[in-house]
Simulated assay, not measured.
Amino acid sequence: MSSASERTDPRITRTITALQRAAVELASQRPVSRITVAELAGRAGVTRATFYNRYSAPLDPLVEALYADLETGHRLEDRRRAEGYPGPELLRLAVAEVADHVERFAGVYRHALDDPADRGVYDALVRHFNDYALTFLARATGAGLPAPGLPGADQQVIAQFLAHGFTGAIKAWLSDPSITKDDLVDAAVACAPAWWAAAGASAPPKTVDQGRR
């Protein structure tokens, strides 16, 4: 996760942005596991030493870029929650935002899907959804919300179940051309537990920390 000084130093910001953009461009052409640091640094216009000052592998800036885009959707969800959107509508819109994200980075996700050596992209997606689910559950239980059926089971297990299930649904969508984005959204909403929508509508906004990778 970026420090405060990194976020305010325009040179560092430009370097990070360039490396993230280069990672997305290259990973949209072929699996990120086949991208070299030298190639990525060259595309970004920086030295290998500059790359290694922050990252260890091309997957790292790629995941950072993916998380940043997903986080934009979470902020939109928080605004909608604050505006009083009903739980079921919030759920559908949140799932649709993720589907839109996958479409924006379709090349990245499809290349990762086809290469067994490239599982890091989907592992990162699972971690993202796991962190989001844990934050959601902590926010809901901490607020003492009147959410029908809010589970009392282990939250780590619940979060992993939801994260792997949603990531698996995305893989199924991308693997089968006959499955549409609307099919994905419909299926994910149908599989979501009833307590998710009930808790989500009234939970106070809180952005998930995407610094963990």
Rank of each mutant, 00 (worst) to 15 (best):
P61Y: 01
E6L: 06
T180I: 07
D123V: 14
G84N: 08
I12W: 04
S5Y: 03
F129E: 14
S175N: 12
T180Y: 07
L184K: 08
V126N: 07
R104F: 12
Y67F: 15
I12T: 15
D154W: 01
A94C: 13
D69P: 04
R75D: 13
R79G: 08
D131A: 15
T8G: 11
R92H: 09
T36Y: 01
P58L: 05
P10G: 02
A159K: 00
P204N: 05
A94Y: 01
A82L: 03
E77N: 12
N53A: 09
A140T: 07
Y67R: 14
A188K: 12
A143F: 01
L19A: 09
K181S: 07
A140G: 14
R30K: 09
V24F: 10
R30A: 00
V46D: 02
E103K: 09
G168I: 09
G87M: 11
F161S: 04
I158M: 00
P86F: 05
S3W: 05
P58I: 10
H101Q: 09
P151C: 08
G200V: 04
P177E: 12
Q160H: 11
D209C: 01
A112F: 11
P116Y: 04
A27P: 05
A133H: 10
V157L: 11
A4H: 03
A57Y: 05
G73F: 12
D182G: 09
P146F: 02
G87K: 02
L59S: 14
G211N: 12
D115H: 10
D115V: 05
A163M: 00
V95S: 02
Y85A: 15
H164I: 05
D131I: 03
G73Y: 07
R110P: 04
W195Q: 02
L125Q: 11
A188E: 11
D182A: 15
F105S: 04
W195G: 00
P148C: 05
V63M: 06
A23S: 09
R110I: 13
Y122C: 10
G200L: 11
P151D: 06
V185F: 06
R43H: 08
R110A: 05
A172R: 14
S178I: 06
T8W: 04
A99L: 09
R104A: 05
A65N: 08
E77C: 07
